[in-house]
Design a protein around this nucleic acid. Structure first.
Lengths: 335, 335
DNA sequence: CTGAAAGCGCTTACAG
DNA sequence: CTGAAAGCGCTTACAG
């Protein structure tokens, strides 16, 4: 592989017999250039194999055409969908996106933020880890470029945010179970430090209270937000003296784990025990049985976050926006 | 949001009372600096909130700390896993990764490549679209920075490659079905222009031939590589005069679609008709019934590609490498 | 449209 | 360790 020297705008200008300033205008799509000159220069670019150096341009003009997206785990279909939304909106607007995955590690999140800032991203969309340490909250606060939080908020950090109303979603799910006659309903999965969990819990509790049911703390079990987490959580709750007849899960992933755990125990989800998830992943209708769940519009959250970020980049002064999408219950066979 | 002026290395040097050259050495982790000076400078950096400008540094030193990863669709768990592998290896090595998704569009692929080159990526890992046009092949050939192809090769493009032996994998899958007594085995999904499809087909055919079975072209149906594609493909093959008793699918996603299609038709996958997939996604064991499939080591392909790219960046002169992983059959209840 | 100069924030190379 | 200069590939601003 031979290493060619990079072709510069000066080379192009020389080749086309124009000044560098003119070439620069053309590469940026200025309309003030005579069509004939423009074609001449474009031909030269093509001939020389010129590649515009956006990095140099951004540096000189103190701008940026990149954006950072930080999520917790791409293996979670929720985030895969969110990423789709972000990419769709952002690439259309001409940004190139850096992707970082934290695997819910606080430290990793800090590293990624630093890395992206060092790379002069124009803004960051951050889906925070579920438990932000004090350090990492300070880190986020110290970000002095456009920042949009998605999915989870961080306490005491005020900036643009897109998420859904988890409390309402949880309430819908639990109400549904109550209407089906269930009185012992567990809430499984997630970690109590995250706002996303607290909100779900609050919705879960309101629904129970409204129905005149007591809250039984033994029916609330935290777990990692994975299939494995769900399998573990259902086990803990299944073998107690007075087991639940229905389960509201932190998300579909956990719900899937719960179903697998039930199968292991010889129980049929949807028949022996009702299961409701949260997210409405692409896979939810395909589970066995198809999963009743709350749609959390991952794709929409992503594209809204992207739009918010773009607007913030364009205008730093505008008021902070909070977009809270309303969830929707999708009833299937698991409940 | 107030817009602070960026703190430069010069500012840090002034604050710490050293020269810019010294500060530069320290920020790059040189060991030739007295510990005391170093601490003084690091303190100043912290105090001023200095953010290293990697973009400027890379530009001056004609290097790069970014890498581009181009995949077809993040909603395919195979690519989600591959991405995990890439990120793991690459972030460890200090790169920040640009992600682009083509959705199997040739044009999008060209755009993404151009964008990434304009952003001075140090190298690209490309999972090519399934049907590369002449134009886009030329585009790929014209890439004059380190390039690693993954998952699919492109004809007449010679560069580092990581993939698995699809032919062998397909053969294993079909052999397995033959041993279970099946004689009419369909091959569903994928598009015939991709090498990944051709190789699978070749493995499918060899297995049939070895067993003395004829190849029936009506049992080979192409489709998009999605669940929907699988649902469509099984429909086409199910209602013919002499339907198959087993199906080998392009991948797990297609297989899942096939299962859903069977359910729709009132048939039970694994009982009325055997189904085998390809990839061994995280979800494969969780399908109903659990899916027999060929493991394609997505994660490993990703991390190997990352390693290859890193090596190529470090040493442009080394010989082209081709890493072909050997697949493995994972037998579950669907066959 | 041209031309010459300055600057974005770094690294490089070198004399001291 | 310092200091001064040059340069990475662009854009900006301005006089002509």
């Amino acid at each position: 592989m031979t290493h060619k020297k990079r072709v510069t705008l000066q080379d192009v200008a020389n080749h086309a017999g124009v000044s560098r300033a003119t070439a620069s205008l053309i590469v940026r799509g200025s309309s003030k250039i005579a069509e004939k000159t423009k074609q001449k220069v474009l031909n030269s670019m093509h001939e020389l194999g010129y590649v515009y150096d956006r990095v140099a341009a951004n540096m000189r003009s103190q701008s940026s055409s990149t954006v950072g997206l930080i999520i917790t785990d791409i293996a979670n279909p929720f985030y895969a969908e969110l990423l789709r939304g972000v990419h769709h909106s952002l690439e259309e607007a001409g940004y190139t996106v850096f992707l970082g995955t934290t695997f819910d590690s606080d430290m990793k999140q800090e590293q990624l933020i630093s890395r992206m800032l060092e790379h002069r991203v124009g803004g960051i969309i951050l889906c925070p880890v579920s438990e932000s340490s004090g350090n990492s909250i300070e880190r986020v606060k110290a970000i002095d470029i456009p920042l949009v939080l998605a999915v989870r908020e961080i306490e005491n950090v005020s900036c643009d945010y897109v998420g859904i109303d988890y409390a309402v979603g949880a309430q819908m799910a639990v109400n549904h179970l109550i209407h089906r006659g269930h009185r012992r309903i567990a809430f499984l999965g997630g970690t109590s430090h995250s706002t996303a969990w607290k909100e779900r819990r609050s919705g879960y509790c309101s629904a129970l209270k409204q129905a005149g049911l007591d809250i039984d703390e033994t029916l609330i079990v935290e777990s990692p937000v994975t299939r494995e987490g769900g399998m573990g959580a259902i086990r803990k709750v299944l073998f107690q003296a007075n087991p639940p007849t229905a389960v509201f899960c932190f998300n579909d992933l956990v719900a899937h784990g719960v179903m697998l755990g039930l199968n292991d125990a010889g129980l049929k989800p949807g028949q022996d025990l009702a299961v409701v998830g949260f997210d409405n992943n692409n896979e939810a209708p395909l589970y066995n049985p198809p999963l009743t769940t709350v749609s959390s519009y991952a794709r929409l959250i992503g594209s809204q976050a992207a739009i918010l970020l773009h607007q913030r980049i364009v205008n730093q002064e505008r008021d902070t926006q909070r977009i809270i999408l309303q969830p929707e219950l999708v009833v299937r066979k698991s409940s």
